[in-house]
């Protein structure tokens, strides 16, 4: 049975999402068997991240610079801001490569049950940002859930005085999806958001 620093490392890794104690033990064993190629580079990368990564003061993204690479990119359209719930939503949109505007990370959605109100989200920061530099459009890219859409309506209400266009992303059939596997709510949303083809 490992003891001391090995057990500590296993315990620390097991606290991460997606990794249980067994996976952590396997990972630690692999690293200890190949310290030069696995353990030391990992330790260096962790230290480097700890020292360099910061939260972008403009959008809430994580990067080594502030403002982040997305906010600092001169090729992006600063007149369009996509509001997303979490940083992983921002990264998902960046992976897709379909959006060339800027982002704003809220850090959650309004939730009465979890006691998360507007003050706990990045709403004030978003309003200040738009006040400082007016934009043409704000895209509310929030989840198609009760909490996500409640937050979207709240934001739309708060954004009304800025007279910018406020839109939300469509809800409906995913690419590659079959109708007979969809729930009635998604089907209803898809039908409602139908587009003319000709």
């Amino acid at each position: 049975m490992p003891a001391g620093p090995i057990e500590t490392l296993i315990r620390q890794l097991a606290r991460l999402p997606g990794i249980g104690p067994r996976s952590a033990r396997r990972a630690v064993l692999a690293m200890l068997k190949r310290p030069d190629t696995l353990l030391e580079p990992l330790a260096a990368a962790l230290g480097e991240c700890r020292a360099a990564v910061r939260i972008c003061s403009a959008c809430g993204n994580l990067d080594v610079t502030d403002p982040c690479a997305v906010c600092a990119d001169p090729d992006r359209d600063p007149d369009v801001i996509a509001v997303v719930t979490e940083i992983d939503d921002l990264w998902a949109m960046e992976r897709a490569g379909v959006f060339r505007g800027l982002y704003h990370v809220l850090g959650g959605t309004l939730s009465a049950l979890d006691g998360r109100g507007p003050d706990d989200l990045g709403v004030a920061r978003l309003l200040e940002r738009i006040e400082a530099r007016p934009v043409l459009e704000v895209i509310l890219a929030l989840g198609a859930t009760v909490e996500g859409q409640t937050t979207a309506h709240y934001l739309a209400e708060r954004l009304r005085p800025f007279r910018c266009k406020v839109t939300r992303i469509a809800h409906g059939v995913p690419v590659g999806g079959e109708l007979n596997y969809l729930d009635e709510g998604t089907l209803g949303a898809a039908l409602k958001a139908r587009q003319p083809l000709a």
Binding site: L113, V146, T150, H171, D183
Partner: peptide
């Protein structure tokens, strides 16, 4: 029975749903 899709687009009805459940 899933939520009617139209509900997500109506801020008042959505707020009422959230209020009733909470």
């Amino acid at each position: 029975r899933s939520l009617p899709a139209a509900l997500l687009d109506d801020p008042l009805r959505l707020a009422a749903l959230g209020a009733a459940c909470a």
